[in-house]
């Protein structure tokens, strides 16, 4: 696959630990199987064969927060749902990342009212915001690739 060519006939690759760990983190980042509203439909479409998020190491959405690395907040977050979402986030093992998918999760969107939290960043630390109402699967995949860039750039001192 090209690796052999680079390795030559020595069978040895030299790189930094940061590079290897960050590379492995991005190539198998499993999202939590959770959707809150209509954005979840687009998330499912992004997962299905036409857009195929498996290309980016997201072979499957894990149904348990204990096994997932990425929380895609797909949809508006109600005041009543926020504690549940925070709990799911707290149950995920470190390292973990959050994507706020869509306008409602990013800043409340059109729901500027008593029921909806004005941006999920009031409850969770968000890494990437994806705009759109709902965002197309391409936009979500773009957001995921943006997150990969961020993870690739992480220094060893950032690892917790």
């Amino acid at each position: 696959m090209g690796l052999e060519e680079k390795a030559g006939n020595l069978g040895i690759i030299t790189t930094t630990l940061e590079n290897v760990v960050n590379w492995s983190r991005t190539r198998a980042m499993w999202p939590l199987l959770s959707g809150l509203a209509c954005c979840a439909i687009e998330m499912m479409a992004a997962q299905s064969s036409h857009y195929d998020m498996s290309r980016f190491g997201m072979e499957l959405m894990r149904a348990s927060p204990r096994q997932s690395d990425l929380l895609i907040v797909a949809g508006r977050v109600t005041n009543k749902m926020a504690p549940v979402l925070r709990r799911l986030y707290d149950q995920m093992p470190i390292p973990k990342w959050v994507i706020a998918m869509g306008d409602c999760a990013s800043n409340g969107g059109v729901f500027n009212n008593y029921a909806i939290i004005q941006g999920v960043d009031e409850v969770l630390p968000v890494d990437v915001y994806v705009a759109g109402c709902p965002p197309r699967p391409e936009a979500l995949i773009n957001g995921i690739l943006l997150l990969y860039d961020k993870v690739q750039g992480e220094k060893i001192t950032h690892w917790s």
Binding site: R86, Q118, G119, D121, E122, V123, L124, P125, S160
Partner: peptide, 11 residues
């Protein structure tokens, strides 16, 4: 103005 006044979540 609005963004500065908003509560932000911690890790």
């Amino acid at each position: 103005d609005i963004d500065l006044g908003k509560p932000r979540a911690e890790e």
